[in-house]
Write a protein that binds this DNA or RNA. Structure first.
Lengths: 335, 335
DNA sequence: TTGTATGCGTTATCAC
DNA sequence: GTGATAACGCATACAA
């Protein structure tokens, strides 16, 4: 590897002069600057960012932790984060926790040893709290993304899950549905709780009693529990519509419904949170669409502001709105 | 930040003793080892991997460059790479070039300055060659993924695009199709050329003349060119089936076909390379499915072997087979 | 079994 | 304008 010393020798200057040329710092005559630059080119010099980090005490790296890299919501978010990071001169270290606390912990350890300048953290669940406390203890700035974590105060970019859920369910009510089921993610994830609240809000606003036997808890990763579905359908007064906590739950749900011969939306309407991405032929789902790209982009912005101290001490909370998009998966209840 | 010196002071030993405890190297009495470990715990010590890299001349970081983070093929590949990397004790630095040479170059620069130990490189196109030469010049080991690049010799994990394409087209021929169009990715990407060859192979094997007016070139990112589609449909002897170069092309194609009122597969069969991922309700496409996860996992394995010198000097070429999966998007041609 | 000196590649400080 | 020196946090080689 060629170092500043190699350049210095070739250019008949000291290493310091080379360093100054690289960083455009200090006073250097145009002549030597040009000579040094030329030699750097010739020798294919690339600064060693490890050495740089060591003395500067900053890595210009940020870490992004997401819970599901297969979900288009998070990959789109990742693109937003990546673009913003690059624009601001930071590298982005991705991590995918797969909703697993074990994996998440491994990433946190890695983050600490890598001395990244900050972390964009989309928590696996409320149980991620100790991981965040660890980051706090080591004074690594972080911004919570999409999910809040009880007991952790911090900057955050979240969606308005409660309102989005209410809008989705009110849409169903508007179509004439009264028996509306909820198939939710784990309630140890803040968005799932908010969506439950929004669901209840909508019911209350329309004088529909909350029926516990219609509220199911699953996982945002996928819907596989066929038993749950059967129980739902075999209820004395079964639902005519389902609000799914996220896109993947909706997909899994509809797959099973089709297997069981339940037509959507003819016999059952389905609505959900989050879009399904580019691989879908026919945008079919009625969704509360969230600006995933913005989640990432704004998250990075907040994080970098915090790192640079360019922000007030109070925690910044950014709440991005969701948009109700009505499509083919919801319709009037069967007569 | 707490360093080995802080630990050393607390434990009444030298910094070196601490270092040895951390790395399990040299002889240390059980007593001091225990004491040092305890103090490391208490002080929340985390080794500084920058400093470590600097002296060890290795970062234990690998870089993965993919051309499209929104495509399930590449995200699945990324998961495979990530899992394998973590298992082997490496961190993974993701990069998404978006099929853009400019972005790709930025990532290459970043890779060089970060001194990653190796790179998993899925090239934007043949024009990525200078980027790879740059890596070579700086002696950074790399493994080509999915796509070969003319003029660059290296380890590689690729699919058998030619054979996969032949199988897909022969499947169509078997159904009775004779007029089969090809909507391909850019021919400056090796897999697109291979798929064109496989397409031609299948035609020749079945005594169907290659008709240039049926072979279209688009981009793997998406299919948007409605003009191309109209020209195809308005041909004197229009195709009854299309072989799409990848999943996204097939999705875009079918969307346009549906808009134009052309039913699939009734009036037009569509087959393609690569699956569509978890967001699809109803697996509908007849595809040549590639083991995307394996691409990433094996790629990392090859790369780490190369880094450790645990492999022969000759370049290793791994070719992973694709599997023909027949589903609803292909059928007999209309009478 | 433990400690000392040295260097990895860079930059900040201050002297020339 | 330019350069010598020390420091960032750690590990290797060698002494004690």
């Amino acid at each position: 590897m060629v170092t500043i010393y190699d350049i210095a020798k070739q250019a008949n200057v000291s290493a310091m002069t080379v360093s100054k040329v690289i960083n455009n710092t200090g006073k250097i005559s145009e002549k030597t600057r040009a000579r040094v630059k030329k030699i750097m080119e010739e020798m294919n010099y690339v600064p060693n960012s490890m050495a740089r980090s060591l003395v500067l005490q900053e890595t210009k790296m940020l870490s992004l932790l997401i819970p599901d890299i297969t979900n288009p919501f998070f990959t789109t978010l990742a693109r937003g984060a990546e673009d913003a990071a690059m624009r601001l001169g930071y590298k982005l270290l991705f991590g995918n926790s797969d909703e697993s606390l074990t994996k998440e912990k491994e990433y946190v350890d890695m983050i600490l040893s890598t001395r990244v300048d900050g972390v964009l953290f989309s928590a696996a669940s409320d149980l991620s709290e100790p991981h965040l406390q660890t980051l706090r203890k080591h004074r690594i700035p972080f911004v919570l993304l999409d999910r809040e974590v009880p007991g952790v105060e911090s900057d955050a970019v979240t969606g308005n899950s409660r309102e989005g859920a209410r809008k989705l369910v009110e849409h169903l009510v508007g179509l004439g549905h009264r028996r509306i089921a909820l198939v939710n993610g784990s309630l140890s994830v803040s968005t799932a709780r908010d969506r439950l609240d929004g669901y209840k809000d909508a019911l209350k606003l329309n004088d529909i009693p909350f029926d516990e036997s219609l509220a199911f808890e699953s996982s945002y990763k996928h819907f596989e529990d066929e038993g749950m579905l059967r129980r739902m359908l075999e209820l004395p007064d079964p639902p005519t519509a389902v609000f799914a906590g996220n896109n993947f739950l909706a997909v899994g749900l509809i797959r099973k419904l089709l297997e069981l011969g339940v037509k959507v939306p003819d016999r059952m309407s389905v609505v959900c949170f989050d879009d399904l991405g580019a691989s879908v032929i026919d945008p079919f789902f009625t969704v509360a669409s969230q600006p995933a790209y913005q989640f990432g982009a704004m998250g990075i912005q907040l994080l970098v502001d915090r790192i640079k101290g360019a922000t007030t001490p109070e925690w910044k909370k950014l709440v991005l709105p969701s948009e109700l998009i009505v499509r083919g998966s919801s319709g009037r209840p069967p007569a």
